[in-house]
Amino acid sequence: MAKGEGSDDRGKAGHTSGGHDAGEDAALQARLSRLSNALEQHQNPAGPDGIKVPELSGQELSASNLGFRVLVEFFSAILVGTLIGWQIDKWAHTGPIFLIIFLLLGMVAGLVNIYRIAAGPKPPRAG
């Protein structure tokens, strides 16, 4: 409370020396607090700990960009799956078995990721 009064006094002193009257100063203060309230509400629309879902689904980006995302997703899924299978095969000397299994698993994972892009982001759960 004392702190608030102190800053108010200083503000008034500064403004009277500048040639303004106290009424204008109060109006300015009210406007400032209103603006900072609006800013806070704008920045935290869902409360202090709320999380908004990112808008990364297809509507926001252009169609070519969405297509490119899908391509990269599928391509790298197969690439990573193949690499994992290849390395397991090399380590365990098990011929091409794991290569084939992980190639297929990589395709599945890529398709799952593409499905996630198409389905849009899920609302995150607290936990």
Partner: peptide
Amino acid sequence: VIEVISFLIRPVTLSVRLFA
């Protein structure tokens, strides 16, 4: 297994998208 692979894919997609 699918989830683990799709986690391992993340750095690859992240980098390949920007690079490509």
